[in-house]
Simulated assay, not measured.
Amino acid sequence: MGFAADEAPKAGYRRSAGSPRGEARRRELLECVTEDVAANGLVDFSLRRAARAAGTTHKVLLYHFDGVEDLLRQVVFKLRARRIDNAMAAAREASGHETLAARIRAVWPTLLNEESRLSRVLDQAIGLAMYDPERHSDLAREASRQYLPVLESLCPAHWSDRRRREVAEMILATLRGFLLERLTTGDAPGVAAGFEALIRMLEREEAAGG
């Protein structure tokens, strides 16, 4: 997977942080670049490609962002937020969503059926973190920081903070594994069987009380 990092921020570039007008412009640029990445993926992502997508120059992007890796992190964050919003909407709209197991069952189809381009980009981001952890480990760490609080919020309110975190960690790791298995092997029946086992495990965890 190619990833250009030849445009490090230059000394002397002024940052737009703190200015309402500058912040609005930064959000506008970020939205343009995010849509480009959603459509075309992360392969050969660079500051110059991002500038073309935003209709500006790479120097303008360096005024608003701290280099190509900062821009990449913010793009991936926005795309993950989109995935989370879709999943939480499904959880809220599902009937019988009073249990954790039912909520996870409602969320799962959105992860399987979400726009393939979005899923591909987020998989590529995790791939970058695995391929070059020295540069891109934040892409994986920030994924957990985004997903875990959401999964904890789906757990029963009377559970302790520790128990919610433990179960959320287990759900996140298991669903990640299922998605990777489906992507790499195409074994949809096997993934479906594993998911049903996860649901039964969550039902037993809730039935245990506490």
Rank of each mutant, 00 (worst) to 15 (best):
A173I: 11
G41F: 04
P189N: 11
G186Q: 12
I104P: 02
L111W: 12
G67W: 07
V191T: 13
A101Q: 06
C32T: 03
T99A: 03
L118V: 10
R48Y: 06
R80G: 08
R49A: 15
S137T: 09
T174S: 15
P109R: 05
E69T: 13
S19D: 15
A39K: 08
A4H: 13
R182I: 03
E134R: 11
N113S: 11
T56K: 03
F45N: 11
W159E: 01
A129S: 13
L172N: 10
L118Q: 11
Y63W: 10
S116C: 00
A102W: 03
R73G: 06
S144K: 04
P189F: 11
V107F: 02
A208F: 09
H58N: 09
A39I: 00
L42T: 13
G210F: 01
S119R: 15
G12C: 12
T56C: 10
A89H: 09
V75K: 07
Y13G: 09
T57C: 10
D187L: 10
P109A: 03
K59D: 14
P133L: 06
I199D: 02
V191M: 12
R14F: 09
R145Q: 15
L111G: 06
A17Q: 05
E142T: 13
G190C: 06
R164G: 01
D161E: 15
E35C: 04
A125L: 09
L151I: 07
R80L: 07
A140V: 00
P156S: 02
L72H: 05
A39D: 08
W108D: 09
A81H: 12
E142W: 14
A90Q: 04
G41L: 06
E35K: 14
S46T: 03
V167E: 12
E31M: 05
E93V: 00
E181D: 11
G41S: 04
T184Q: 13
L100P: 01
E152D: 05
A173K: 14
H136A: 14
T57V: 08
N40K: 13
L128T: 03
